[in-house]
Structure formats: C-alpha cells, structure tokens
Simulated assay, not measured.
Amino acid sequence: MKIGLYFGTFNPIHVGHLIIANHMAEHSVLEQIWMVVTPHNPHKEKNTLLDDRQRFHMVSLATEDYPKIKPSDIEFKLPQPNYTVNTLAHLKDKFPHHEFSLIMGEDNLKSLHKWKNYEYILENHDIYVYPRISESTDTETSSILNHLRVHKINAPIVEISSTFIRENIKNKKNIQPLLSEKVWKEIDHNNYYRK
C-alpha cells in the first residue's frame, strides 16, 4: 500500500490540514494518508504546545470520518530528538509491505537540504508537495523541486495556521469555521489555549 506521511505538531489540527490530506488521498497515487503527530521536542520550550496525547486525540477525532486518513503516534515511541530518516527506517522495518512517501508544503521543501540524510530520503522516498504562498525559489530548492522523486500536487492553497487559531482562542474570537466540529468541542470543553 502507498502511504503518505503528513507530519505536524497539529496544535491544533484544523480544516487546512484536512483539506490537504484529503486532496492527497483523492488526487494522487497515495492510498492512505497518515497524520504523524510530532512529539514535543524535549530540547525546546513547551510554550503553547499541548500534551502529545491530547494532540493525538484531536487528530483522531478530526479524521474519524475520513477512511483514507489515519492518525499516527509512531514518533511517540522513538527516541527523542528524532529525525525523519529514523522514522522512515522504523516504518520500513515495521511495515515492510508498505511504500512510504512524505507530504510537505513547498516552504518545507526549501529547507530539505538541511535535514539529516536528506539525500537518502530523496533517493528512497517520493515527496508530494502542496503549494504555499512563498517567496521565489533559490537554486538549491530548484534542484530538489525538479528531482524525479518530488511530485508537485495542484492542491488548494490553504493559509490557515495553528498559531493564528491559538491566538484567536486566547483572545476570545470565534474560530469555529477553521476547525472540525469534534475538534472545536474538544478544545472548548477542555479550555485549551485559553491562557
């Protein structure tokens, strides 16, 4: 099975994430999309990052009605700090019959050359890129963007950020349209991001 891995802190998961994941599931060769919840990096300040399990629970709620989109806590079980190349190796061992690809925004692709063992990732895994509103591409990014393993998907441009949602919840603004109903109820019920 062809699996697309969509990594994120999902703090919180919002409709933008779902639009992109669903678009990848419906308009690419990927058969399933796994929303991989990134654990809290022990070397970074926690700030407004909810607990790993709370964020995973919200991703589970948000994806319940999408049979091709699954929540994944695979990185919770790996040593921290973790690198994507290690996650991919772990998944290959655990699910040898699946073919894993990465899903990322054009903005993230620009820093791919800074990732640990990025050449190995490019040689062994397809990368599906969704468009973002961003500045022009430099030569380093151009060579990666034109790599045989990199596939630009004509997905809708969604400029919603979790930061924007958290700030607006804190400021008592109504952001319900930006979240799935189940996620909004979970945030509201538990008073997440209010302080």
Rank of each mutant, 00 (worst) to 15 (best):
L30W: 03
S60V: 02
H125Y: 09
Y193Q: 04
T38E: 14
T38D: 13
L102A: 00
P177Q: 09
N124H: 14
W115T: 05
T163A: 14
V158T: 13
K110H: 08
R149W: 06
V158S: 13
N191I: 07
D138I: 05
N108I: 04
I19F: 05
V36L: 10
D188M: 07
K70N: 08
S143A: 13
V150N: 08
L91T: 00
I3V: 15
P42S: 07
G16F: 09
E26R: 12
Y6N: 05
K114I: 04
K92C: 04
H17E: 10
S101N: 01
F7P: 07
S28T: 15
N82W: 07
P156H: 08
K182E: 15
V129N: 09
I157E: 15
K172T: 04
V158Y: 08
V129H: 06
D93K: 15
S72I: 01
S162I: 03
K195N: 14
Q32V: 02
V158N: 14
S180Q: 10
L61A: 03
D51F: 01
L78C: 11
L91Q: 06
K70M: 12
W34P: 01
T84Q: 09
S28H: 01
H23C: 07
H125A: 02
K152Q: 15
N41K: 08
E167M: 07
K170T: 10
L88Y: 06
P12N: 11
I69G: 10
M58A: 12
N11H: 05
T9I: 06
F164N: 14
N108F: 00
V59I: 02
N11R: 05
I69P: 11
N190L: 11
L122W: 08
E45S: 12
E181T: 06
D93Y: 10
E140H: 12
D107R: 08
S72V: 03
H151M: 08
P71D: 13
N191T: 09
H125Q: 06
I144M: 12
A21C: 07
W184K: 07
L179Q: 09
D51V: 04
Y6E: 06
I74N: 03
E106G: 08
H23T: 09
N146K: 10
D65W: 00
A89D: 11
D73I: 00
W34E: 02
S161G: 05
H113R: 10
H14Q: 12
D138G: 11
V129K: 03
N171R: 10
M35L: 12
N154V: 04
K114Y: 11
D65L: 09
D188P: 00
I20W: 02
T87D: 09
P79T: 07
G16Y: 10
V37M: 06
V129R: 00
P39K: 04
E135N: 11
H17M: 08
S111E: 15
I157P: 06
K92V: 00
A21I: 03
F164L: 13
E167H: 12
V85T: 06
K172E: 13
H125R: 03
I3S: 02
S101V: 00
I127E: 10
H97W: 00
L148R: 12
L30R: 02
K44P: 11
